[in-house]
C-alpha cells in the first residue's frame, strides 16, 4: 500500500468513529442537503463550523483531511475559473464597479466572484465531510449501515443483502489488489520494465505486464472466494444474523442534535436572511 490516505479508514478511536454508521450516512445526506440549502455566507459558515467540530472530535490529523481536498484541487480551480469568467450579471454586492473587466464573452464581475467563492466553499465542504465518513468508518461498518438503511427496498424484492455483500467484498478487495499490483510492479521493475517514463502510449504499453497478471490473479481470487463461501454453506441473506448488532448510544444523540441544529439553522437563515450576504 503506497498511499493509504485517500478515502480510507483512519484507525484511531474517537467520538466520531463510534457514532452509529447508519446515522453517519444519514448525517452525510443531511449535511449535503444543508450545504445546498445554504444560500448565504452565514449558513455556509455554520456548515463549516460543523465540519470543524467533526474533524476536531475525530482525531484524524488535519494534514490527512487536507489531502482529500488536494485530490479535487484541479476541479475546484477549474469550476472557480469558469464561474468567474462566464458570469455577466451586473448585480452589485459591495461598493465599487459591478464589472471589473470585460473581453468578448469573458468578464470578471462582482456577481461572478461571489458565485464562484460560494461554489468553491460548497465543493470543499462537501468533499471534506464525505471523506470524514470514510476516514472514521470501516468499510464493513459502512456496508452494514447501508444495508440496514436500504432494508425497506426488500419489500419490493430488491436484493439488498446481495448488494451489500458485493459492496463489502469490493471494498475488501481494494487493498488486496493494491498490494498485488505493488508486488507485480516490483517484479517487472526488477526485470527492467520502465513504469513511469516516456509518453502516454509508452506508459500504457508498460502497464500490460502488470495488468495481465493482476487480472488473472483477481479472477483466481474471486473463484477461490466463491468456493470458500460455498464450502461454508453461505446461503445469502435469509435469516442471517449479524456479528455486530448496531445500537444507538448517547453519542448518536449528540451527533443527531448537532446535525438537526445545523439543518434548522440553515433553513432559518435562508428564510430570514436571504441570499448572498
Amino acid at each position: 500500500m503506497k498511499d493509504v490516505s485517500f478515502g480510507q479508514y483512519y484507525p484511531v478511536s474517537s467520538f466520531v468513529h463510534r457514532v452509529d454508521p447508519r446515522l453517519k450516512i444519514l448525517f452525510l445526506i443531511a449535511y449535503i442537503v444543508a450545504i445546498f440549502l445554504a444560500n448565504n455566507f452565514y449558513a455556509l459558515g455554520a456548515c463549516a463550523l460543523v465540519l470543524v467540530l467533526t474533524i476536531a472530535f475525530s482525531h484524524v490529523p488535519v494534514r490527512k483531511v487536507f489531502r482529500a481536498v488536494r485530490g479535487i484541487l484541479f476541479l475546484v480551480v477549474f469550476t472557480a475559473a469558469i464561474n468567474v469568467l462566464f458570469n455577466a450579471s451586473e448585480e452589485v454586492y459591495w461598493a465599487g464597479p459591478a464589472v471589473y473587466w470585460k473581453w468578448k464573452i469573458f468578464s470578471v464581475t462582482q456577481a461572478g466572484i461571489v458565485f464562484s467563492a460560494f461554489l468553491v466553499i460548497r465543493l470543499v465542504l462537501l468533499v471534506t465531510f464525505s471523506s470524514m465518513l470514510t476516514y472514521t468508518t470501516t468499510p464493513v461498518a459502512l456496508t452494514d449501515g447501508l444495508e440496514s438503511l436500504l432494508t425497506p427496498l426488500k419489500w419490493i424484492r430488491f436484493p439488498v443483502h446481495a448488494l451489500a455483500l458485493i459492496m463489502s467484498l469490493a471494498l475488501r478487495m481494494i487493498p488486496i489488489l493494491m498490494d498485488e499490483t505493488e508486488r507485480i510492479r516490483d517484479a517487472q521493475k526488477a526485470r527492467g520494465a520502465a513504469m513511469d517514463e516516456g509518453n502516454l502510449i509508452k506508459r500504457v504499453k508498460a502497464m500490460i505486464p502488470v495488468l495481465i497478471p493482476l487480472l488473472l490473479s483477481a479472477f483466481r481470487r474471486a473463484d477461490e472466494l466463491g468456493e470458500a463461501m460455498e464450502s461454508r454453506c453461505y446461503m445469502g441473506g435469509k435469516k442471517r444474523t449479524k456479528y455486530k448488532k448496531l445500537r444507538f448510544t448517547w453519542r448518536d444523540l449528540i451527533a443527531f442534535l448537532l446535525i438537526a441544529a445545523l439543518v434548522t439553522g440553515v433553513v432559518l437563515l435562508r428564510v430570514y436572511v436571504g441570499a448572498f450576504l
Binding site: R183, I184, D186, A187, Q188, A190, R191, I208, P209, V210, I212, P213, S217
Partner: peptide
C-alpha cells in the same frame, strides 16, 4: 520474488 510465476504475462 516469492511465487515468481505471478509475473508471467
Amino acid at each position: 520474488f516469492q511465487y515468481p510465476e505471478a509475473q508471467l504475462f
